[in-house]
Amino acid sequence: VLFSKSSNFVENQSGPTHESMQAVFDLQPFRPVVNLSSPTIANLSFTLYAVLGVNEKAQILTTFLWLRLFWHNEFLVWDPDECDGVSRISLPVKELWTPDIIVYDVDDDVSQACPYVYVNHTGHIRWDRMLRLVSACNLEIFSFPFDVQNCTFTFGSYMHTSKESSLSICTKTFKLLENTSGEWELVDLTGESSILQFGIDEWDIITFWVVIRRSPVLYVVNLLIPSSFLMLIDILSFYLPPHSVDRASFKMTLILGYTVFLLIMNDLLPSTANGTPIIGIYFSVCLALMVISLLETVIITNVLHHSSMKYQEIPNWVRVVILKHIANLICYRWPEDVRPPEEAQEEKLESSNGTTGPWVIQPIRYVLDYLLFRIYLLLITCYAMVIITMWCIWISQS
């Protein structure tokens, strides 16, 4: 018995049988329309279940999707009243024609399609598919680890044009689940239908935009906080006595430790051909600042080393600029064991060859150390403000 609008089931048979639909199964290679000039309308429902992983180096996104396809088979229409009230059945998907919907930008597709489809008496068919997709995604890692990524999924027919198969989105049926486990958080999902023009043919396609946000806690705890601690220790090392040799060795130990930290951190940072993340620049500049700090210590140590040696008289304008104007500008307070230049001037002792004693070198070295320390603090403060501002601007625009 042909299973169609005008067909009836075998008498005393509760619902359709395999024999009653054999004629429909035989038409499986053909598009299920009576008039081949009419397109088969396929509707797509999209649910993003989870983000399984992101490979920044390979620019690959791994997701788990749940798709539902709806279409109409004009050969599978019956009257439930003539079939003991049976209005819905399930059939093997391999026995029926199915839309050849694929994802265009996929590197790997692990499909767990349901082997059966649900068919109601009007000929409408529903087919569920669960997909684990490894798809290409252009990742922007400049604001790593506070980055927000926008990846796309494009669905379309492999061989049927718009005249043969029309693809559209089910109204308000694409969504994302509230799944925030793992490193990535699902933020938003939007989609729209469009036409793909290729030569004289047109294909219906559906594009979904998936917005995901990285959870930065792991990177803040493992990268930013330890780096900030090392920079803080480097700043506090300026409070060591400038005449202490331990200050230089201490700073060199910090630089060595920071270098080891950078080597370990290199495995956590994403590496792509699109550019360098701002956090990588941040660590490089921090290392440069620590080197500048060591250079400042070398300069002060050099001045201290020669403080007991015989020097020619320091020009008066140098003493005035450093000991008076610069000292007042940076609000320098003289240590208890160092006399202010006005008092020391009264007790000035010059050797017979016209050299200057350590009373002049010592105040100058303290003022220079204080001045260079303030400049170093200013550089670090400006640098931190620039980094925080850039990150805030980038996050607000994402």
Rank of each mutant, 00 (worst) to 15 (best):
G199T: 03
I141Y: 15
H306T: 07
D188R: 13
D81Q: 09
V220G: 06
A50F: 04
E140Y: 12
F142Y: 15
L76N: 03
A23I: 13
S228T: 15
L224Y: 11
P145K: 10
R31I: 02
P39N: 03
S193M: 03
K310T: 10
I89V: 15
I278Q: 07
R339G: 01
P29R: 01
W391F: 08
P115D: 07
S165A: 10
G15H: 06
L378H: 13
W97S: 14
G191C: 05
T62P: 12
W71N: 04
D109V: 15
E192S: 15
S38M: 04
P358E: 02
D234L: 02
S307R: 03
K5F: 10
A136S: 07
V260C: 02
I292F: 05
T276M: 04
C286P: 08
L69F: 10
R333P: 02
L372A: 06
L368W: 05
D267I: 10
G354Q: 00
V367Q: 13
L2C: 14
G15P: 13
E343H: 11
T17D: 02
K94E: 14
E192L: 12
D234T: 11
G85K: 12
Q397V: 03
N12V: 06
R132F: 00
K348F: 03
S7I: 02
V221Q: 07
L294E: 00
A136N: 08
Q22V: 11
Y282H: 04
D234R: 01
I89D: 00
G53E: 09
Q28K: 14
Q149T: 09
N8Y: 10
I101S: 04
T297C: 06
D147Q: 14
C114Q: 06
G182R: 07
A288L: 14
V54N: 01
D108V: 15
P39W: 02
M159I: 12
W209V: 12
A136H: 06
